[in-house]
């Protein structure tokens, strides 16, 4: 694990679905996870019920800051269906009527 000076806002929650903190995002960036998708896979940030709608831009901003690049250069994660959580019963039912 890389040594990283603790910052005042390290314990702020960034991803509220999976309780991932800003400190953890910063630690992952310092360990070399440099895309939103990589951070998502290792920490689950953005993998919860809201699918990253709340945290995605905050992680992008932190990446831009840490890597010293403009935010438009931060690669966006893959967007896959479904756009909102779906009940298992809906999946099981498929296109049926009831």
């Amino acid at each position: 694990m890389t040594d990283r000076p603790k910052r005042h806002d390290d314990d702020v929650i960034v991803c509220r679905c999976e309780d991932v903190t800003l400190g953890e995002i910063r630690r992952l960036i310092s360990e070399g996870y440099h895309t939103i998708d990589e951070i998502k896979r290792i920490s689950r940030a953005g993998m919860g019920q809201c699918q990253g709608r709340t945290c995605r831009h905050l992680i992008a901003r932190e990446l831009a800051r840490a890597l010293g690049v403009p935010q438009e250069e931060v690669e966006m994660p893959m967007f896959r269906p479904p756009t909102r959580p779906v009940l298992l019963s809906t999946i099981a039912r498929g296109e049926g009527d009831e």
Binding site: P81, P82, T83, T90, R93, E95, G96, E98
Partner: peptide
């Protein structure tokens, strides 16, 4: 009804918490 996904085939999949519709 929610637009759940759009696929390369040009199909739009909708979902109403009960069923899927293509």
């Amino acid at each position: 009804t929610n637009a759940s996904g759009f696929y390369d085939s040009g199909e739009l999949v909708l979902e109403d918490e009960k069923r899927f519709m293509k």
